[in-house]
Simulated assay, not measured.
Amino acid sequence: MFTGIIESLGTVRDLKKEGDNLHITVFSSITNELKIDQSVSHNGVCLTIVAINNDEYTVTAIRETLEKTNLSDWKTGDTVNLERAMKLGDRLDGHIVQGHVDQIGTCKSIENANGSWYYTFEYDALLNNITIEKGSITVNGVSLTVVNSKQNEFSVAIIPYTYEHTNFNAFEVGTRINLEFDVIGKYVSKLHLYKK
Rank of each mutant, 00 (worst) to 15 (best):
N43M: 09
E67C: 10
E33L: 15
A85M: 11
V101T: 02
E33P: 06
I96Y: 10
N70P: 04
N53H: 13
E33S: 13
Q98V: 02
T48F: 07
N70G: 14
A61H: 08
G89A: 07
E83F: 09
H100W: 00
V101L: 06
E33H: 14
Y57W: 12
R63E: 14
K108Q: 14
T65V: 08
S41G: 13
K68G: 03
A51Q: 10
L66C: 05
V97Y: 00
L47V: 09
V80R: 02
D55Y: 14
H42N: 14
N43A: 11
T60H: 06
L82I: 07
D90P: 05
L66G: 05
D78E: 04
N54M: 13
L34N: 09
T65N: 05
S39Q: 05
M86A: 11
T79Q: 13
R63L: 15
D73G: 04
N43T: 09
I52K: 02
N81I: 14
E56L: 11
C46N: 01
A61M: 06
S41Q: 06
G105K: 03
V40M: 09
V59Q: 07
T79K: 15
V101K: 00
G94D: 04
L88W: 11
D102Y: 00
T79G: 08
E56S: 11
A61F: 08
V50F: 09
Y57C: 10
N81C: 13
S109Q: 12
I96D: 01
E67R: 02
D102K: 00
N70L: 04
L82N: 05
G89T: 06
T60D: 08
L71W: 05
K87V: 09
L66R: 00
G89I: 05
T79N: 11
K108V: 13
D90A: 04
L34R: 03
V45K: 03
R91G: 13
S41Y: 02
I110S: 09
V101W: 00
G77T: 03
G77F: 01
R63K: 15
D73M: 08
R91M: 11
N81H: 13
E83L: 05
Q103D: 04
H100N: 00
D90L: 05
T60K: 15
G77D: 02
A61K: 01
A51V: 07
V101D: 03
